[in-house]
Computed example of a mutant assay.
Amino acid sequence: MVLCHGFTSDPASMRPWGEYLRDAGFNVVAPLLTGHGDTWQVLAKSTWQQWYARLEQALDEALAMGRPVFAGGLSMGGSLSLRLAELRGGDLSGLVLVNPAIYDDKPQGFLAPVLRFVMPSVAAIGSDLNKPDVREQTTSRTPVAAYASLRRLWKVTRPELARVTVPLRIFTSAEDHVVNPRNSAVIRAGVRSKDVESTVLHRSFHVATLDYDAETIFAGSAAFMDRQVTRSRGVHD
Rank of each mutant, 00 (worst) to 15 (best):
H5M: 10
G6A: 09
A12Q: 02
M14T: 02
E19R: 09
E19Q: 14
P31R: 04
P31A: 01
T34I: 04
G35R: 02
G35H: 01
G37E: 06
V42K: 13
V42L: 06
K45R: 14
Q50D: 15
Q50Y: 09
R54P: 00
E61Q: 14
L63V: 11
G66N: 04
G78R: 00
S79W: 06
L80R: 02
G89M: 07
D91C: 06
L92V: 08
L97N: 03
D105A: 10
K106R: 09
P107Q: 13
A112T: 10
P113E: 09
V114P: 03
L115M: 15
L115C: 06
P120W: 01
P120C: 07
S121Q: 12
S121W: 08
I125M: 15
L129N: 02
T138C: 14
A145Q: 09
Y147C: 02
W154A: 08
V156A: 00
V156Q: 02
R158E: 08
V164A: 05
I170R: 06
T172D: 05
A174E: 15
V178D: 01
P181S: 13
A185P: 01
K194N: 12
V196Y: 09
V196D: 09
T199C: 14
T199W: 12
S204E: 05
H206Y: 06
A208I: 01
F218T: 02
F224D: 10
F224I: 04
D226W: 03
R233Q: 14
H236C: 08
